[in-house]
């Protein structure tokens, strides 16, 4: 009964320590479970891949596609149609930027980097290719992968797949089925 050389090893203190551990585990487990339950395991959110319609339905120039929250740019020359998608979500704090390209930069009469997109929330401005002109935006607007859906031939913007600039171009020859990536 004499364990005086090792303190805290009596039955009483053992039970005290045991109950502290059990109590601590119970509280810790409860807090963990409560917090963990707030992190969703399943997200009922729209798909990150968005169909934006067949080529002939997409207007020329720059168009905002609402479901993708992206600007799709379509330009045709020499029988080829070039398509790419740029995110419309400002890289600063997530507002939707507006297409504010001036007429002179549309026609390509100026060489200076002119404003293509502007953000109403904190004044960031981007070129038509997404580079930051001014304002608090820390990064250029990302480009999204564009592909052709194999089932119905609609174009698909994948907003979860950020691609390197100018590699996102999809060039379609005038013939419908002749599709290749550059």
């Amino acid at each position: 009964m004499n364990n005086s050389d090792r303190q805290g090893s009596t039955r009483r203190s053992f039970l005290a320590r045991l109950s502290i551990w059990i109590g601590g585990l119970a509280v810790g487990g409860g807090v963990f479970a409560a917090l963990r339950s707030l992190i969703p395991n399943v997200l009922y959110e729209p798909s990150k891949k968005v169909k934006i319609g067949t080529l002939d339905l997409i207007p020329d120039g720059v168009t905002l596609f609402k479901d993708a929250k992206a600007f799709v740019s379509k330009h045709g020359s020499e029988g080829k149609t070039r398509i790419h998608a740029i995110s419309a979500v400002c890289t600063h704090l997530g507002c939707i930027v507006q297409h504010t390209e001036s007429e002179e930069s549309k026609s390509g009469t100026t060489d200076k980097p002119t404003v293509g997109f502007s953000c109403a929330c904190h004044g960031s401005q981007f070129t038509i290719d997404g580079d930051v002109v001014k304002g608090p935006a820390p990064e250029p607007l990302p480009w999204f992968a564009v592909s052709v859906s194999p089932d119905d031939g609609q174009l698909v913007v994948d907003t979860s797949s950020v691609v390197e600039r100018h590699k996102a171009l999809l060039v379609l020859k005038s013939g419908h089925c002749n599709v290749r990536k550059v």
């Binding site: 600063h92 904190h122 820390p138």
Partner: peptide, 20 residues
């Protein structure tokens, strides 16, 4: 805070720190 957020994006070397 909104005014600060809009003005304080910092560039340190090659890193850009978001004003947010």
């Amino acid at each position: 805070l909104q005014e600060l957020i809009a003005d304080t994006t910092l560039t340190v070397g090659t890193y850009v720190i978001n004003g947010g």
